[in-house]
C-alpha cells in the first residue's frame, strides 16, 4: 500500500553575511537587476506606457436655435439669408421675408433622456425670377460629454449643397460626428469648456471675408469640433417658386480619444511589469541558490535543525 503526501512545508535555509561584503554586494546587485530588468524589457518591447485611450459615448446634443441659412441664387447679388441674429448680417440683405418657416424637432427615440435625432425643416419662398443655385446651412449645437471626459462646447453642423438645376426641395440625412485633431486632456472632475462659446453669436465680421467663410475659418481652427457625415442626400428639380430644405441629423455614439491619467497608466503598466518581474525573480533566485549553496561567496549558512554556535 503506497503512501500519499498529505501536507508539506518548506524549510528555510538562511545565508547571512555582514553589510560590507561581496555576498551583500552580489545580493544587492541581483535585487536591483530583478527590479530594473523587467522594466527595461517591458519598455523596450513597446506599449508599456499607455499613450492614448478612447471611449464611446452618445453626447447630449441640443439645438441652440442659432442658425444661418444662405440660399444663393443665379444672381450673386441676390441671396436669401435666414439667420437667428440680427447683427450677424448687414442690413442690406433685405430678403429675410422669404424665409417663410423654420421648424425644429428634437427626438428622443429610445427615451433615454438624450436627443437621438434632430429634424430641421426650412420653407423658403423663391421669387419667380430667381432660381437657387446653392445653400449653406449652419446650425449651432450644444454639445456635452458627461462620463469620462466631461466636455461642454458649442459646435456647428454645416450642410452645403450646390444645385445644377433649379431645386424645389432638398432632403439631407446624415450622422453627427465628433472630430478631434488631438487628444482630449480629460482631467477628472473638471469640465472642459474651452470651446463653450457661441461661434455665431460672438462672431465679429471681418471686413475682408464673407460671413460664411469666416465662420468656417474660425471653426476650422478648433482642436475639437463636430461635422456631419452625409449618409444620403437628394434634391428635387423644378422651379416652383418655393423650396423645402429638410435635414435630419442623427446623434450616434461617438468615439472620443483622450490622454489617460496617471493611475490609468500605472494600472496598464503594472501587470506587464509584474509578469516580467516574476520571471526575472525566479531566474535570479535560482542564481542566488546556486551561488550560495556552492559557497561562491562567503556567507554563513543557517540550517534550522542545527544549533548555531556563532551566536
Amino acid at each position: 500500500m503506497g503512501l500519499y503526501t498529505l501536507f508539506s512545508y518548506n524549510v528555510e535555509v538562511q545565508f547571512k553575511s555582514c553589510l560590507f561584503s561581496k555576498a551583500m554586494l552580489f545580493t544587492l546587485f541581483l535585487t536591483i537587476l530583478t527590479l530594473i530588468l523587467p522594466f527595461v524589457v517591458a519598455n523596450k518591447s513597446r506599449g508599456f506606457w499607455l499613450r492614448t485611450q478612447k471611449f464611446y459615448e452618445q453626447p447630449n446634443i441640443h439645438f441652440t436655435y442659432e442658425y444661418l441659412l444662405v440660399a444663393e441664387s443665379d444672381d450673386p447679388s441676390y441671396s436669401i439669408v435666414c439667420n437667428s441674429m440680427k447683427g450677424l448680417v448687414g442690413s442690406n440683405l433685405r430678403n429675410e421675408e422669404h424665409c417663410t418657416e423654420f421648424q425644429v424637432h428634437e427626438h428622443d427615440v429610445n427615451s433615454d433622456g438624450k436627443v437621438d435625432l434632430l429634424d430641421f425643416k426650412y420653407y423658403l419662398d423663391i421669387p419667380k425670377e430667381r432660381t437657387i443655385t446653392s445653400i449653406a446651412l449652419i446650425l449651432m449645437l450644444d454639445f456635452q460629454l458627461k462620463t469620462i471626459c466631461p466636455l461642454h462646447m458649442q459646435s456647428l453642423a454645416v450642410i452645403n449643397r450646390e444645385f445644377v438645376t433649379p431645386p424645389s426641395a432638398f432632403k439631407y440625412l446624415g450622422d453627427l460626428q465628433f472630430y478631434q485633431i488631438s487628444h482630449l486632456p480629460c482631467k477628472p472632475n473638471m469640465i472642459n469648456t474651452k470651446y463653450n462659446n457661441s461661434i455665431l453669436f460672438n462672431y465679429a465680421k471681418n471686413g475682408h471675408n464673407n460671413i460664411v467663410d469666416s465662420i468656417l475659418d474660425t471653426y476650422f481652427m478648433r482642436e475639437v469640433s463636430t461635422l456631419i457625415n452625409t449618409l444620403y442626400s437628394r434634391n428635387q428639380n423644378g422651379q416652383t417658386g418655393s423650396m423645402q430644405v429638410q435635414a435630419s441629423v442623427r446623434v450616434p455614439e461617438m468615439e472620443i480619444r483622450y490622454t489617460p491619467s496617471l493611475m490609468q497608466e500605472l494600472k496598464w503598466a503594472w501587470p506587464q511589469y509584474l509578469s516580467l518581474a516574476a520571471v526575472f525573480y525566479w531566474i535570479f533566485n535560482k542564481i542566488r541558490i546556486f551561488v550560495f549553496f556552492n559557497r561562491l561567496f562567503m556567507a554563513r549558512r543557517i540550517v534550522p535543525w542545527k544549533k548555531q554556535s556563532w551566536k
Partner: peptide, 15 residues
C-alpha cells in the same frame, strides 16, 4: 395654414 400646432417648434417670417 400658419396655425399654432401642439409640439411644432417653428419660426415664421413675413413682410
Amino acid at each position: 395654414s400658419n396655425i399654432v400646432k401642439f409640439g411644432v417648434n417653428k419660426r415664421t417670417k413675413c413682410l
